[in-house]
């Protein structure tokens, strides 16, 4: 077990202990919710893990690097940003996917952009957002988020 995993588990355990001290009943309910959501997300996690194995096994580093690596340039970043905006996959499993892409030659910039547009922008949920918040606000939020995601990615690429 690596340090990060130990830290995360300790963090969760600490919260759980506090929760049990504050309100036993609520804490038990939280555990039930946790158990249910664990089994709900498990199939998706397994799907992405198999896909990662296939991706790293079958697609060569140079191919991935050409599409989303340093050589891809701004065009590649734009494609990745669009992909993140359109795709509707749970953000929790986007992180292992992102890690596998970096391992196989993707640039920090494109991976950071992908995660950011994936979480912040939802083309699928846009109609609902327009209905609830109005056209102006919904479109402004999504468009500005798109630009922001690219800026964040570029800064991260420079710093890391």
């Amino acid at each position: 077990m690596n340090k990060t995993a130990i830290f995360i588990n300790a963090f969760a355990l600490l919260f759980l202990i506090f929760a049990f001290i504050r309100d036993r009943k609520k804490a038990k309910k939280a555990l039930t919710v946790a158990l249910k959501s664990f089994f709900r997300i498990l199939p998706t996690v397994l799907i992405i893990i198999i896909l990662i194995g296939l991706l790293l096994g079958f697609v060569s580093k140079s191919t991935i690097s050409k599409i989303v690596g340093e050589q891809a340039g701004l065009g590649g970043v734009l494609v990745v940003a669009m992909l993140g905006a359109v795709l509707h996959i749970p953000s929790l499993i986007s992180f292992p996917l992102a890690a596998s892409l970096i391992k196989s030659g993707a640039s920090i910039t494109s991976v950071a952009v992908f995660i950011t547009t994936l979480t912040m922008i939802g083309v699928v949920t846009l109609p609902l957002e327009i209905k609830e918040l109005g056209k102006r606000m919904a479109i402004l939020r999504n468009v500005i988020s798109f630009v922001i995601a690219i800026i964040i990615g570029i800064i991260m690429g420079v710093v890391l």
Partner: peptide
């Protein structure tokens, strides 16, 4: 490898989510 890395933290992450959800 990815499965192991995920399964080491997924229960903890779900517990945190459950706690926030209820509290």
């Amino acid at each position: 490898d990815f499965f192991v890395e995920m399964i080491l933290i997924l229960p903890a992450v779900m517990v945190l989510m459950g706690l926030f959800n209820v509290f």
